[in-house]
Design a protein around this nucleic acid. Structure first.
Lengths: 205, 205
DNA sequence: TCCGAAATCCTGTAAAAACAGGATATTTCT
DNA sequence: AGAAATATCCTGTTTTTACAGGATTTCGGA
């Protein structure tokens, strides 16, 4: 039985590359492609693929949003995240939103096929590098932030002082300072420069 | 006369996509590909393509550096920047370093061929979108940093204080402070948090 | 309902950064 | 050779952050 495959990616060359890689594969049925989330959703109203390869960073609706949307309407469809970036936060968000796996764009044909076959069988597949990314940054490095901490973090990154953030959030400056302290502890950062650097690398700001 | 073409891109799927797009083209001779700057330079010691399609963001040596390197040793080779990002600063830096053009990864086959033909004829070609990027919506320039400023910036991002950086670089803390001030002015940042945020977004740290 | 995490607020001190306003060598490029 | 850019260093003051060591309230989940 062929696997009905659909692709969403805003880069024509990547679509072409994957099509070229998979065209001789007997057990893959190429259903088509979309270059943005909206077209993808429109396509799904008419036909239902088994597996969707989905780029994470796209103009307009991101892959992360699209994944959630597709999964809520068509829970049976398996989604594989596709990205150039091997960022823990992206991988995590896709999986949280119901994706069956994550493949990097520098993956080999074999890896891609493995991921598709795993997805078809309702299993999870992560690129070797993606797993490494999860491992190496795991537990220790990537802190879990509270809602308020994220909010404060964003304003810090924007360049606001504690007092300015306090005014923005209608809380006292000492509270902001406490959140800042906790952020620093969670990230094991010595100062705000290191904090923002780590947060930025983790895709949190 | 066929155009001898070589590709450098760390994404296998993109290489495959371009190969697939161009394989029927009579006037293109596919010389091969590399997945990083070092392999590319090694290849050039043996063979000399006319045009190189070069990804801008690669692990290790970036396309921007590689472009400069290639042009200094082989001024006759024409280089086309290839990227997902339509950032003014990237386009500019490639052109500054001697590139003949810039093509986005979502470009069509026709656009890619036009760019290659222009490059072969020693002309410049920019993706329509790249031109728009240069023209319109004021994507703020990356500030041009000096060698020392970059160095200081990296240590700041790592979480070192001025004094610690001073000891590391064998200069006085006031000098580090001056570099810090200049960085802040160049980035139009209010404080170090905003500085690191902007630098990180720009891929400088 | 109780627990624990989250969010709020406080005092105080020390350290660092931000800001102002300089000066002087040393490269680098024209 | 001369100008411009870069890198170096200085003295201050003010603002902000970093650190220590608390406390109370709120709220969601077991």
């Amino acid at each position: 039985m062929k696997t009905r495959l659909f692709i969403v990616d805003d880069h024509y060359m990547v679509i072409e590359g994957i099509r070229s890689l998979l065209q001789q594969e007997e057990d893959i049925e190429w259903m088509g492609h979309a270059t943005n989330g909206e077209s993808c959703l429109a396509f799904l109203q008419r036909q239902e693929p088994e597996v969707i390869l989905m780029d994470i960073s796209m103009p307009g609706m991101s892959g992360i949003e699209l994944c959630k949307e597709v999964k809520s309407h068509y829970p049976g469809i398996r989604i594989l995240g596709l990205s150039t970036f091997n960022q823990r936060s992206f991988v995590e968000k896709m999986i949280e939103n119901g994706a069956s796996g994550y493949v990097l764009k520098n993956a080999s044909k074999e890896e891609l096929l493995k991921a598709i076959q795993a997805a078809k069988a309702f299993k999870t597949y992560l690129s070797f590098e993606a797993v490494q990314g999860l491992r190496s940054h795991s537990e220790k490095d990537l802190p879990i932030l509270t809602r308020r901490e994220k909010e404060v973090l964003e304003w810090i990154a924007a360049g606001l002082t504690n007092l300015e953030i306090a005014e923005k959030l209608f809380i006292s400056a000492t509270t902001v300072d406490t959140h800042r302290k906790n952020l620093m502890i969670k990230f094991e950062a010595k100062n705000v420069a290191a904090l923002i650097h780590l947060a930025s690398k983790a895709g949190l700001v």
